[in-house]
Write a protein that binds this DNA or RNA. Structure first.
Ligand code: SF4
Ligand code: SF4
Lengths: 137, 137
DNA sequence: ATTAAATACTATCTTAAAGTAGTATTTTGC
DNA sequence: GCAAAATACTACTTTAAGATAGTATTTAAT
């Protein structure tokens, strides 16, 4: 139902970048548009770079660019990189090793929706977030 | 996608109670069956009592009983009581004042599912969690 | 070469959720 | 009356996420 702040930031940053005409993004630029704490965003950017989503260009005129084609970056990969996806596989009631045969009291009502969400995050790519209709990042 | 530990506990406790033949539940009893930290559970129980879901019976032979009919207790009310439901209305990307007219990059794919979840929590009651099939609490 | 503008690194602080400990109070059975 | 078994209350500790601060490094324009 809710991601960690860090995942939110990561998705907002990358979603913002993919919806822009720009190629290179400085931390300063991202901070002013996304209102994410400066130093926190910078750490997150190097983290995203380490994970191969973006590439950093150091020095003057530097910044960040995508490191690979956005069609190959799945949202679940981003979340997995910054906070781990594991905590979401064991779901609403925090249980794990769940199955239809040994369900918690919410399973029949919730598991189908949970699966939709997980499936969505697994199949949606950054490229899918590109749209002219987007007004908020 | 995930509730706070406290909400998980609250739902597991009440879901466990509604699926039992017992009428009165001591904290000790709940702790042994649900493996929730003793003192934490006790605090949560008095909190749930203050919120009118259960009633505490003090003294020897005491414990907790439902304070009203389980068909009148909606899951969203429980979550709202222990951690607040507000944080879930502004969804995946942590934005608020969302609408179809000013969507974030995930809106079209995610909002429908989010609405299903919120709707589920609003309409499901504790009574709906009662089933012979439940194996884990 | 020097400076300016950018990222990288490391260490620390803050905050809120979660968990723990100890004491006080209530009620019933004997 | 008193002990036993339960809940209630208050204060503290721990943990992890989030945020901040300061310094070092890299690179290009001049
Ligand atoms: S809803 Fe199903 S998958 Fe989720 S915690 Fe309950 S049993 Fe496990
Ligand atoms: S998915 Fe829709 S409702 Fe959720 S944060 Fe984005 S714009 Fe708001």
């Amino acid at each position: 139902m809710k991601l960690s702040k860090t995942s939110e930031y990561a998705l907002r940053i990358l979603g913002f970048m993919i919806n822009s005409e720009k190629q290179v993004f400085t931390a300063r630029y991202l901070v002013t548009y996304l209102h994410i704490p400066d130093k926190y965003l910078r750490r997150l950017m190097t983290d995203l770079a380490r994970n191969g989503f973006i590439k950093s260009i150091q020095g003057r005129e530097g910044g960040y660019v995508f490191a690979k084609n956005a069609t190959t970056i799945h949202l679940s990969e981003i979340i997995d990189a910054v906070e781990g996806m594991d905590k979401y596989t064991g779901c609403l009631l925090g249980l794990n090793n769940c199955s239809d045969d040994s369900p918690c009291s919410l399973h029949y009502a919730y598991a189908p929706i949970r699966n939709q969400v997980l499936n969505l995050l697994d199949t949606l790519t950054l490229a899918d977030l590109k749209s002219l209709k987007i007004k908020r990042f």
